[in-house]
């Protein structure tokens, strides 16, 4: 009797857990599915009630966007800005983070805190000073300016993250490598770095997301030639109306690269984000 009682309680728990998971999944996925499906519909089909789940998909919106709408160019701008800034942040952040974790500096902790505190600046507060600096150096309307702006936020973040990952690593392995014949740089590059790969990947993804999703910097610092996708998307909402089809297609284009990158590195991502949680 006791056995059935326990197992029926277990059953209820299982059902509840799966119901909750189901709701969460619908909550997370439905808007995305809705967006992707809508982008493949004609404008007439898009608002029909009840919504149509079976229809003949059309790529006409995408075709229009990439031919007439110059979305290929916007996509390229977004990619260049996001990936360059991420690459710079990761390279410099990894070197700087390693130096702060291993070097024996006076007030090293204060230096590290000062660095991360710059990441805490609200984007809005950074825009005006950056605008003045960029105007002086003729960087307004250049992709380089945008990369620079993203890097001012990504670099301190990457440096701080990499510093904590390296600090958790016992230094003995690098010492062993140096005694084995490695230079300090070889000990860093061949011994320490491979061990923080998950952290590096997670940091990279977070930097990429910041730059990719940015609207504020891009809307202020870009001109039509180097506009990024989020800015282009915002222009679809005009006083005369909303280009729903293009908005849906743009949304799909925006999330696809992040989705693919996320899936490609998800093995590292989970380990990276939970690094240090369990020794």
């Amino acid at each position: 009797m006791a056995g059935t009682k326990v197992s029926s309680r277990k059953l209820i728990t299982t059902v509840l857990i799966y119901t909750a998971l189901g709701i969460a999944m619908v909550w997370a996925l439905l808007p995305i599915i809705w967006m992707v499906l809508s982008s493949l519909k004609t404008e007439a089909n898009m608002f029909s009630m009840p919504p149509k789940f079976t229809f003949k998909p059309t790529f006409s919106t995408y075709a229009f966007m990439f031919t007439e709408g110059n979305f290929g160019g916007f996509l390229k701008n977004s990619m260049i800005a996001a990936f360059s800034s991420t690459a710079i942040a990761l390279i410099l952040g990894t070197l700087g983070g390693y130096a702060l974790a291993r070097g024996n500096y006076r007030r090293g902790k204060d230096i590290a805190f000062w660095i991360i505190s710059t990441r805490m600046t609200p984007v809005a507060a950074a825009i005006v000073p950056l605008y003045i600096i960029f105007a002086k150096f003729h960087l307004i309307g250049t992709t380089f300016g945008l990369v620079f702006a993203y890097t001012t936020f990504n670099l301190p973040f990457a440096l701080w993250m990499m510093m904590t990952f390296f600090a958790e690593l016992p230094p003995d392995m690098e010492h062993a490598a140096m005694v084995d014949g490695a230079t300090k740089f070889q000990a860093f590059y061949r011994i320490a770095l491979p061990q923080v790969t998950p952290g590096l990947v997670a940091t990279g993804i977070l930097c990429l997301m910041f730059a990719w999703n940015d609207f504020a910097f891009a809307s202020v610092f870009t001109s039509h030639e180097n506009q990024t996708i989020p800015v282009a998307a915002s222009l679809l909402v005009s006083q005369t109306g909303i280009a729903w089809g293009q908005a849906m297609a743009t949304g799909t284009v925006i999330i696809t690269p992040m989705l693919i990158t996320g899936l490609a590195v998800r093995k590292y991502l989970v380990r990276g984000l939970s690094m240090g949680a369990v020794k």
Binding site: M173, H175, A176, A177, V179, D180, A182, K184
Partner: peptide, 28 residues
């Protein structure tokens, strides 16, 4: 620097390179 001293050291916690197998550890 340590690399030029031609010495070898065994550490208390062994300090093996975790991302390399035993052969690679010894060959490093």
């Amino acid at each position: 620097p340590p690399k030029d001293r031609d010495i070898a050291m065994v550490f208390q916690n062994y300090a093996l390179y975790p991302h390399m197998n035993v052969y690679e550890n010894m060959a490093f």
